[in-house]
Simulated assay, not measured.
Amino acid sequence: MKALISIDYTYDFIASDGALTTGHAGQAIESSIVKITQSFIERGDFVVFAIDAHDPTDVFHPENVLFPPHNIINTQGQNLYGDLNQLFHQYQSSCQVYWMNKRHYSAFCGTDLDLRLRERHITELYLTGVCTDICILHTAVDAYNLGYKLFIYQDAVASFDPIGHTWALKHFQHTLGATIL
């Protein structure tokens, strides 16, 4: 069984005026992400939206000193970007689509993601979203350590940093044994 993990494709990370935007790099992958997500939904596969979620009153969160405020819970900045937001709202009541707030880079850290995947007998994870060298990378490392087989859509991941993006794609393949699609 397989699942798609769509990571952090939100307004704050993608829109030109987003609080911590990847800008054009993130915007350029929108059609690929939407097409891939639609195909997973149509096949009846499990689709997880693992979304960065910050509470501005959380003074202990380490990202508060690393990055400007972004993806604040219940704000436009945390909404999915563009056509992906429309697709999510179309299928959000389906049991095959799951929205998951995450506090850390990895979609596994401090969440019930592993439990939800295992109860569905999922062994293969397909990753899309941003940032290739931050949240995608940390999620992939945790997935690898948990024994999942990894697939990364090269045309559906992006980063602020082109060098970091390229490095992460090589790391996925050569260190984590991921298949780059």
Results as ranks from 00 to 15, higher is better:
residue 74 N to D: 15
residue 97 V to Y: 00
residue 72 I to K: 11
residue 67 F to I: 06
residue 66 L to P: 01
residue 71 N to L: 08
residue 84 L to G: 01
residue 59 V to N: 03
residue 106 S to F: 08
residue 103 R to Q: 14
residue 44 G to N: 00
residue 53 A to S: 15
residue 73 I to L: 07
residue 98 Y to W: 14
residue 57 T to Q: 14
residue 104 H to Q: 09
residue 79 N to L: 14
residue 51 I to G: 02
residue 67 F to A: 07
residue 93 S to A: 13
residue 97 V to P: 01
residue 47 V to S: 03
residue 78 Q to T: 07
residue 47 V to R: 03
residue 91 Y to T: 00
residue 50 A to S: 15
residue 70 H to S: 14
residue 81 Y to R: 10
residue 73 I to M: 08
residue 106 S to W: 05
residue 98 Y to K: 04
residue 90 Q to D: 00
residue 65 V to T: 12
residue 77 G to I: 04
residue 69 P to T: 12
residue 58 D to K: 07
residue 66 L to K: 12
residue 78 Q to R: 15
residue 96 Q to K: 09
residue 79 N to F: 09
residue 102 K to R: 13
residue 69 P to G: 12
residue 79 N to H: 10
residue 73 I to R: 10
residue 101 N to V: 01
residue 47 V to D: 01
residue 86 Q to P: 02
residue 50 A to C: 11
residue 53 A to D: 13
residue 105 Y to L: 12
residue 65 V to R: 13
residue 91 Y to C: 02
residue 50 A to T: 09
residue 78 Q to L: 11
residue 44 G to C: 00
residue 52 D to I: 11
residue 90 Q to A: 07
residue 67 F to T: 12
residue 100 M to C: 07
residue 69 P to Q: 12
residue 87 L to C: 09
residue 100 M to P: 10
residue 88 F to P: 01
residue 102 K to L: 08
residue 68 P to C: 01
residue 60 F to M: 09
residue 86 Q to M: 13
residue 49 F to Q: 10
residue 47 V to E: 03
residue 80 L to E: 11
residue 79 N to C: 15
residue 99 W to Q: 02
residue 102 K to H: 02
residue 45 D to R: 00
residue 84 L to D: 04
residue 85 N to V: 05
residue 65 V to H: 12
residue 89 H to A: 03
residue 64 N to R: 15
residue 99 W to E: 01
residue 58 D to R: 07
residue 104 H to K: 09
residue 54 H to W: 08
residue 90 Q to F: 03
residue 81 Y to D: 10
residue 63 E to K: 08
residue 67 F to M: 13
residue 89 H to S: 04
residue 70 H to R: 12
residue 61 H to D: 06
residue 83 D to T: 06
residue 47 V to A: 02
residue 80 L to F: 05
residue 91 Y to K: 02
residue 80 L to D: 06
residue 58 D to W: 05
residue 43 R to D: 03
residue 54 H to Q: 13
residue 102 K to E: 07
residue 46 F to G: 00
residue 67 F to R: 08
residue 101 N to A: 14
residue 60 F to P: 02
residue 69 P to W: 09
residue 52 D to E: 06
residue 63 E to R: 07
residue 92 Q to Y: 04
residue 68 P to L: 06
residue 68 P to M: 03
residue 59 V to L: 04
residue 79 N to A: 14
residue 55 D to Q: 13
residue 48 V to N: 10
residue 44 G to V: 00
residue 56 P to I: 00
residue 74 N to G: 06
residue 94 S to N: 01
residue 66 L to G: 11
residue 70 H to M: 13
residue 96 Q to T: 02
residue 64 N to Q: 15
residue 52 D to F: 10
residue 73 I to A: 06
residue 77 G to M: 08
residue 103 R to H: 13
residue 82 G to R: 06
residue 93 S to T: 09
residue 87 L to D: 10
residue 66 L to H: 12
residue 94 S to V: 00
residue 77 G to F: 05
residue 53 A to N: 13
residue 72 I to V: 15
residue 62 P to M: 09
residue 87 L to K: 11
residue 84 L to C: 05
residue 75 T to L: 10
residue 79 N to R: 15
residue 45 D to S: 03
residue 89 H to K: 10
residue 47 V to G: 03
residue 54 H to K: 15
residue 89 H to D: 06
residue 81 Y to T: 03
residue 57 T to Y: 10
residue 89 H to Q: 07
residue 64 N to S: 14
residue 62 P to L: 07
residue 99 W to L: 00
residue 84 L to R: 03
residue 44 G to L: 01
residue 66 L to R: 12
residue 95 C to I: 05
residue 85 N to I: 05
residue 90 Q to P: 03
residue 87 L to G: 10
residue 101 N to H: 12
